[in-house]
Simulated scan of single mutants.
Amino acid sequence: MENMRPPQKSVLLKVVILGDGGVGKSCLMNRFVSNRYDENNFHTIGVEFMNKDIVVDGEKYTLQIWDTAGQERFWALRTPFYRGSDICLLCYALNDRESLRHLKRWRDEFLQFADVKPEKFPFIVVGNKNDLRHEINPAEVQQWCTDQNIAIHIDTSSKAATNVTDAFVLAVQRWKHLERVAEAELRQDGETIDLTRPVRLLQKRVCCTGGGGGDGGTNGADYDDNDAHFADSAMRAPTFKTRQLFGQQRKATKAPKTNYQL
């Protein structure tokens, strides 16, 4: 009989797509998740989300993708969903120069409500509508990304299904890279816990006969009263007295006589 290996669990990542209304955020999500494109797609009201399983570098991930409304009147509806995000896609349209200029406002809004550090969070800049005539110079986009300390930029087309999956794969890879950097920094600072080393927990020995086996005033705890660090040293076993708690000789007591006869 073959040994069945348990299925590999996927990592759940929350992905938020931000950008002006009409840049193609919903089309990008629908193309990636269900490989559909709707020419007459309506503007998103509030927020919408869809799930998609993906394999990146041999590891399974479940992306929970949140599409946010780009109109200003939906500001109060979308901002509560920023917290807890793992990845943010800043989306603009290659035929709309203003949408690129507004990306800084979207980034600042996300940083304010998501409460993350900009230098340690994976932002991905996505230039959508690559199938249309470009009004933005690639060098201009690269300079904007450099100024905002964003490492990845990619052009996509939801209509032509160009680089859509690649954008999300790059986002996951960027998240993995920053996670490894954060782990390395924690190791240098000595803030990691080695789960392979055994941990000796403090225990109070209480006699099951009700006597407690203690010296009085210790509430049944059988430890040395001179060990002042008993309560504070969670990683060090206290000095216990060697005492025979069980098998002690006790005087046999006779049952009282009664006048009852059976």
Rank of each mutant, 00 (worst) to 15 (best):
D189G: 06
D189C: 04
L170R: 03
V199Y: 15
L170S: 04
R197F: 06
L178E: 00
L202E: 12
R174H: 14
E191A: 13
G217L: 07
I193P: 09
G213W: 02
G217R: 05
W175A: 14
E185P: 03
K204V: 00
Q188T: 10
G214T: 02
K204C: 03
V172A: 01
G211L: 14
V172R: 04
G217H: 11
R180T: 14
R174S: 06
E191K: 13
R197P: 07
D189Q: 13
E183F: 12
K204D: 03
G212N: 05
Q173P: 01
E183Y: 09
R180G: 08
R200E: 12
Q173R: 06
D215Y: 13
C207S: 06
Q188D: 13
D189L: 06
D194K: 15
T196G: 13
G214C: 09
E183R: 14
Q173G: 02
T196W: 05
G213I: 01
G210N: 09
G213K: 01
L201G: 00
K204Q: 05
V169Y: 11
C207I: 00
G213Y: 00
Q173H: 04
V181Q: 08
H177I: 05
G190A: 15
A182D: 10
R200Q: 15
C208P: 11
H177L: 14
W175I: 03
E191M: 11
R205N: 08
L195I: 07
L201H: 04
Q173C: 02
L170C: 03
E183S: 10
T209W: 13
C208I: 07
R200L: 12
Q203K: 13
R200M: 07
G216A: 03
G216M: 02
R197N: 11
T209C: 10
W175S: 06
L170P: 02
E179W: 03
D189S: 12
G211Q: 13
R187C: 09
R187T: 15
G212W: 09
L178T: 01
G214H: 04
R187F: 07
T209Y: 15
L195V: 02
K176R: 06
V172H: 03
E185T: 05
L202N: 10
V169R: 07
G210I: 13
V169G: 11
R205V: 08
I193G: 08
A171Y: 01
L170G: 01
G216T: 04
G212Q: 06
V181C: 11
G217P: 14
G213P: 01
R187W: 05
I193W: 12
G210V: 05
R200F: 05
R187P: 02
R205G: 10
K176C: 04
Q203Y: 10
L202S: 09
Q188C: 13
R187M: 13
V199A: 14
G216I: 02
L170I: 02
V172M: 02
V181K: 10
V169W: 06
C208S: 14
L202P: 09
W175G: 07
D194W: 15
Q188I: 15
L186F: 13
K204F: 06
C208W: 15
G190P: 03
G212A: 08
E185N: 07
D215I: 08
